[in-house]
């Protein structure tokens, strides 16, 4: 089992004919993702890697059932594309682009809530249920099946952790990237709740960073509602206040969102925080044994 997506999940690719869209369509197909259609206005009737292309999302759903959509759309047009998928009834949308304006992101979240849909991202690497389906841009070979669930705010750092696990023959159930922006759809708690319910996930790794309060909120949830062991790694211990470290959320402002406050909250919830990424496998082995 896995959370959010599996081998049957029928995936639409919006922006499939672009450079990123076509490249990652090939990568996802290679991983085993069930991609059933793509959308690219004005390119209807073509195909990309054997996947039929439609002009609009509505045209695609006239032909196919769509469970999820992934967007490779330039940031200025992402809101329109996300609205289109939501209006057409798609219930899981993965927003890959970075630099989507904040007000647009809030508009997308408000409409998604009305449509009862789940948004992953923006500025995310997506999500992968290891060995069955990948809706995202992460490198295929590191994501092998196993008992560990991972939820992360950042991409490459998450690969780093997964790389350490894979190197120690530890696989993953589902790996979810929340995205590095200030407003994102899925949050730690949404994902932790699903991992807690998933019988195959035995333990969870939370990969967080400085800024905001989502790690602290996750800690409260873990202590009140989770029985499964959780460990964490947090980036930004050395970051000076007031400097935005690449991610829109990763900034210590007005004394909030510090590394120390997050470690304290997580420790109080029984979550051990790794000092370095390479300490994670040993911690997981200890839990699994």
């Amino acid at each position: 089992m896995s959370i959010f997506i599996n081998k049957q999940t029928r995936v639409l690719v919006q922006g499939i004919t672009g450079k990123q869209g076509s490249f990652h369509t090939a990568q996802m197909l290679e991983y085993g993702t069930n991609i059933i259609a793509g959308v690219s206005p004005g390119k209807g009737g073509q195909n990309v890697e054997g996947v039929p292309v439609y002009d609009t999302v509505f045209a695609a759903i006239e032909e196919e059932t769509v469970d999820a959509s992934i967007l490779f759309i330039p940031a200025p047009f992402a809101r329109d594309a996300a609205f289109e998928a939501l209006d057409a009834g798609v219930k899981l949308i993965v927003l890959i682009p970075e630099h989507i304006p904040l007000q647009d992101a809030m508009d997308i979240m408000a409409y998604a809530q009305k449509q009862n849909a789940v948004i992953v991202g923006p500025n995310t690497f997506g999500l992968v249920s290891s060995g069955s389906s990948k809706i995202g841009i992460m490198p295929n070979r590191y994501f092998v099946p196993g008992p560990v669930g991972i939820v992360s705010r950042s991409g490459t750092l998450c690969y780093e952790i997964v790389g350490h696990l894979t190197g120690n023959d530890i696989g993953t159930t589902t790996v979810v990237g929340l995205g590095g922006d200030r407003v994102v759809g899925l949050n730690f708690i949404d994902v932790l709740r699903r991992f807690e319910e998933d019988p195959e996930t035995k333990t969870v790794i939370l990969v967080g960073e400085i800024g905001g309060s989502s790690e602290e909120e996750a800690a409260t949830f873990i202590s009140s509602s989770m029985k499964k062991p959780v460990i964490a790694y947090l980036a930004g211990r050395s970051a000076p206040p007031g400097k935005r470290m690449g991610h829109a959320g990763a900034i210590i402002e007005r004394g909030r969102g510090t590394f120390e406050s997050k470690v304290k909250a997580l420790n109080a919830a029984g979550v051990e925080v790794a000092g370095l990424p390479n300490e994670v496998p040993a911690m997981i082995k200890k839990i699994l044994s």
């Binding site: 950042s154 490459t156 750092l157 590095g180 980036a235 930004g236 211990r237 050395s238 970051a239």
Partner: peptide, 17 residues
């Protein structure tokens, strides 16, 4: 120099470590 905000921060942390 690194690729990705999270891993860049983690690299700085490790330098300090």
């Amino acid at each position: 120099m690194a690729n990705g905000a999270g891993i860049t921060m983690a690299t700085l942390d490790m330098v300090q470590h």
